[in-house]
Amino acid sequence: MISLSTLVQSYGFKHADWEVEGEVLKTEKGLKRISYWADQDQVLWHIKWRDHLADKTGYLTNRMIQTLNGERMILTDEGWLTLHDNVTSLFPYKDREGEFGKFIGQYFSLNIEEPGDYHDPVNMDRINNHLKYPINQGFSEEIQPFIERLRKEALLRLSKAKRLREESFGEEATALIPVVSPIFSLDQGKIVFEKLYWQHGTERPEKGYRSLQIILSQWLQRYGKKSLYTLLYEIDKHFPLKKNHFKNLLADCLTPWEFTLFLEQIQKIDDPNQMEVLKEKLTFQWEESRQLVKALSEWFDLTREKVPTV
């Protein structure tokens, strides 16, 4: 674990103590959170991403605090280390579709043109390999039909996703698939001085729309369809969703990632109670995906009707 004295010396704190040992530091300048990185390139990518995002959007984000020597990261026995302000108050999104839509639109249109080790979480080929054959691994009589029926429906979802992606490449060959710092929850939005403060993680940059899917899905669940549509309109002003990205986004939403995750998880369990928990979890996630696809496609139909055909 990083020593307190190293941090005090590097960052020039007068007083520092552990709030959470190895994670959060209590200093005369407030609480500071430590991030550890295994890969230097990844830190560099995040430094650049956060700088650009803050410049472009004007919103605060957990940028790296500089050391006394002006460095944004230090090398320790634990690997690369960066220090950040620690903010915990959640941003209240309600009735702030415009503000947040603008931020997300700018977030996904940000292209920092930094080479990196991108992660593609929605790999259709891999998922297709999971689903193309009947799955029979000695499951109980009760679970086997459940899995088989869902597998067929998942294949149907995947085929629709593939078709959308093909159409998308045909229509919008120039569309730029976003590469972003991954988002896992709306709760990464914090509030500082009544302003949005976005808290990034340390994960690999992500190519595609999975993060946008999560944002939209959670928004739908929290604030309903009407609010989601307002948010989509706002996003579209800054990120050409309808024109360039919609079908790819929908393809990612259609991809039955939750079912393949379920298949992976049930391999590791033998307790029937755990199976029930996983089934429930799958049902919940599947339903969220279904609701999002429905809402997005209806929004697309709605906006398409308003555009006169040439």
Binding site: F146, R149, K160, R290, K294, E298
Partner: peptide
């Protein structure tokens, strides 16, 4: 023939 119809899929309950 709406886009929503083309991409819709069934819930777990319906499939089950």
């Amino acid at each position: 023939g709406t886009f929503a119809d083309q991409v819709s899929f069934r819930s777990v309950e319906e499939v089950s």
